[in-house]
């Protein structure tokens, strides 16, 4: 028992020092008042939370949920066939898995900047299309909703593929064959056998793509050109230009609370997640 405690102590210390303490500080800030020149001061107040209940911020929150939802659906739709292919690729499987994880070797910022170079008017895609005379004017690929969505899907896709792959890998292919032998059409087999078996992976994939996409602020700045504002940008602005740390802290805690509630509701009946 004591030995067990000793071994658990470092992990517990790290969790407390690096997670709970900062969270407590954020909570405390969110209940304070902005100082005359930024920072935080007295008195204690709930005003920062009340301020968030404003249609302006509600709209930003909805927009963030919408784009995170789009990202999640696209990642699942694109990730599932890829995960299926991976789980059936026999000898080459390890190589393909390495390829899926390859993007993680480069910084997220560099990869996002790379998309700017590909998508801009004088970028690779427009240059090729122009030289093939397929278009006469560069098409605006960058700085719109589609570009942000592309960036988010691109960054989240590996996180969606891996959990789906890990459930599909354990799928007993005999079940699929048995279903076919018993007269099930391919789609019916997919719906009644493959989907239920891979459901835990799909749920994990959905969470791993949805939650980070919800808090994004770099992608919307770099690929969206800052023309729109997501909840992540709102929080960032409070800590930089607006210098309103208490409101920024309150906004990020509200976002975190919504995500946590969602997580609890979904996992209550599905303990297999993650």
């Amino acid at each position: 028992m004591t030995l067990r405690r000793i071994f658990l102590a470092p992990a517990a210390l790290v969790t407390i020092a690096l997670f709970l303490v900062p969270m407590a500080i954020v909570l405390a800030y969110s209940l304070m008042t902005r100082g005359p020149y930024g920072g935080q001061g007295m008195p204690w107040t709930l005003e920062n939370y009340q301020r968030f209940f404003d249609p302006l911020y509600g709209e930003i929150l909805l927009r963030s949920f919408w784009i995170a939802g789009e990202t999640t659906i696209l990642c699942l739709v694109l990730g599932f066939p890829l995960a299926w292919f991976l789980s059936r690729s026999g000898k080459r499987r390890d190589l393909y898995l390495q390829l899926v994880m390859l993007p993680f070797w480069t910084s997220f910022l560099v990869r996002t900047y790379a998309w700017v170079f590909l998508l801009r008017d004088t970028g690779l895609f427009n240059t090729i299309l122009l030289s093939l005379d397929l278009i006469t004017e560069p098409i605006p690929l960058l700085y719109n909703h589609g570009a942000v969505l592309l960036g988010l899907v691109y960054c989240s896709l590996p996180l969606a593929i891996l959990p789906i792959y890990s459930t599909l890998e354990r799928l007993d292919y005999a079940l699929v064959e048995a279903a076919a032998d018993l007269g099930a059409k391919p789609f019916e087999t997919f719906r009644k056998i493959v989907i239920p078996v891979s459901a835990p992976g799909l749920r994990a994939a959905a969470f791993l793509t949805f939650v980070p996409s919800l808090g994004t602020y770099l992608t919307s700045d770099l690929l969206g050109g800052g023309s729109t504002i997501l909840i992540g940008n709102l929080v960032q602005n409070q800590f930089t230009t607006a210098r309103d740390w208490p409101f920024g802290a309150a906004a990020s805690l509200i976002l975190m609370a919504i995500v946590l509630i969602g997580l609890v509701v979904v996992t209550r009946n599905n303990e297999d997640i993650l």
Binding site: R34, L56, E59, S227, N237, T241
Partner: peptide
């Protein structure tokens, strides 16, 4: 020049509206 607290807050709100 440094803006006062209330002006800074109004500017941030107006900016958020511009972006939205």
């Amino acid at each position: 020049r440094t803006s006062s607290g209330p002006t800074q807050r109004l500017r941030d709100r107006l900016w958020t509206e511009i972006k939205s």
